[in-house]
């Protein structure tokens, strides 16, 4: 059978052309279905995805020497303001990342930011955003928020929802200020990169 197949291949039997159209049709039908999985997100599911994103961001970001100086066993993910995740963080809590353990903390003020490598700023803090960002300043912290135009305002990563899909913008300048190196893999996925 193999031989027959090879011979037919060698002879260039043009069965392929016939299947090309069918293949394309199948592809067109299947493609929206593939991406559709990410579309149907709402409410709690949205924050489940966001929590997973937060966890995965850690894998594609390199902190400078200062940023990882603290506890070597833990990687702190701090939530500033009202916790929108509900129980969503439980899935990632304690999971390993970069040979550390992800620790999720709820903080109420910027002064509690000591052991945080990732700072999620809840949309409840929308009004105080410039104040918070100023306070973070050049600290080696990856700031993430779903406040509108977060990255454009000076945050490092800002969630955006496009076509019901969760995506993100990255502010490269802000990342550099915080002495963070963001993997090209992550940059490639960003909706837009602010220089």
């Amino acid at each position: 059978m193999t031989l027959l197949y090879l011979i037919s291949k060698l002879c260039g039997v043009a069965n392929r052309r016939q299947v090309t159209f069918a293949g394309l049709v199948v592809l067109l039908l299947v493609f929206p279905v593939l991406s559709g999985k990410a579309l149907a997100m709402d409410g709690l599911a949205e924050y489940e995805v966001k929590s997973a994103f937060l966890y995965n961001f850690a894998k594609f970001v390199e902190w400078g020497a200062q940023g990882t100086a603290g506890d070597q066993q833990e990687l702190g993910l701090c939530i500033l303001g009202k916790d929108p995740f509900g129980g969503g963080m439980d899935a990632v809590k304690g999971r390993p990342v970069k040979n550390r353990r992800l620790v999720v903390k709820q903080i109420n003020g910027i002064d509690e930011m000591g052991q945080c490598q990732i700072l999620f700023i809840s949309s409840s803090e929308k009004g105080r955003l410039s104040e918070i960002l100023a306070a973070v300043g050049r600290s080696p912290v990856l700031t993430v928020s779903d406040i509108k135009n977060f990255a454009q305002t000076g945050g490092v990563i800002g969630f955006v929802t496009i076509d019901e899909r969760i995506r993100f913008d990255i502010n490269q300048a802000a990342a550099e200020r915080a002495d963070l190196q963001i993997s090209s893999q992550l940059l490639k996925l960003a909706r837009s990169v602010v220089q």
């Binding site: 593939l34 991406s35 999985k37 990410a38 995805v49 997973a52 994103f53 995965n56 894998k59 594609f60 995506r167 993100f168 993997s183 893999q185 992550l186 490639k188 996925l189």
Partner: peptide, 8 residues
């Protein structure tokens, strides 16, 4: 990264 961020 695409898998991590579900970006098929």
């Amino acid at each position: 990264s695409a898998i991590a961020f579900n970006d098929s």
